[in-house]
Amino acid sequence: METLAPTPEEQFQARIDADIRIEPKDWMPEAYRKTLIRQISQHAHSELVGMLPEGNWITRAPSLKRKSILLAKVQDEAGHGLYLYSAAETLGTSREQMLADLHSGKAKYSSIFNYPTLSWADMGCVGWLVDGAAILNQVPLCRTSYGPYARAMVRVCKEESFHQRQGFEIMQTLCEGAPAQKEMAQEALNRWWWPTLMMFGPKDSESPNTEQSMKWRIKRFTNDELRQKFVDMMVPQAEFLGLTVPDEKVKWNEERQAYDFGEVNWEEFWAVVKGNGLCNHERLQARVQAHEEGAWVREAALAHAGKRKARETVAA
């Protein structure tokens, strides 16, 4: 049998296996491009929508210091969304197209942001738990196979590092404060714990895309691996704070050298993914409204740039 020249797909996979980054103009399988656009834009949408639940506490932050920190943090999320949209644009899509997909409901974003933020302790939980979970997802993506995505993630992770710390600090201050504050912290943990575990996605057995994504190195750990890592990381931190994780099944397993924990309510997970979370409607509505009400502003800037250019041409 004669040896066949490697196909473009095989050459592509060989580069990935050798940990050589793929860059925008390189040949890539159409499925790789599509999967990446979906994953990166979904990530960008999550940053954008993620501004809303925390944004609504900026005006109620309890001190000037906390107000500055929270505003800077939510602003960072706008920046992260921007870096990610830019990375996706190198794959041949446009921000306008990605936003249209978000607004029509075609594109998804992280379900965690469809839960309401009801007390100041939620700012602690979002930073400590939600950003903590996000970081577990994101750090491996700094080595993902697509160059612009990896570079965007390096920038995101660098900036993200203060987010989790400020969240933990909020929780710690509450836990060391008055009984009412400690109660506030526990109540928030009770609401955020399970939705945070859901952030890692469905169980591996029900995550059909994982295998291909791992092969392409646009995903580097499975959902269940990351979920376990998260629980192992967070349970001791909750103990340090004097808070109780709302799962009776949480128990150290000496044999596995990991925590056992209970089953996520997958019914709730799928309901929120499908649009039936408490805030799905208003989050999306807020984004659509901002975009639509901004249309005349964006058009004006373009029109003015055009007029100015025309005047310069005449003058020249």
Binding site: K65, L71, L82, Y85, A290
Partner: peptide, 29 residues
């Protein structure tokens, strides 16, 4: 200005508005 955060007409200007708000907040402090 901080009320704009997350609702700006375009992402780049969301960041610009927040920067101005942060400057003023720092000055106020």
């Amino acid at each position: 200005l901080s009320e704009w955060c997350g609702h700006g007409p375009v992402l780049e200007q969301d960041l610009a508005l927040a920067n101005i708000a942060l400057d003023l907040l720092g000055e106020a402090r």
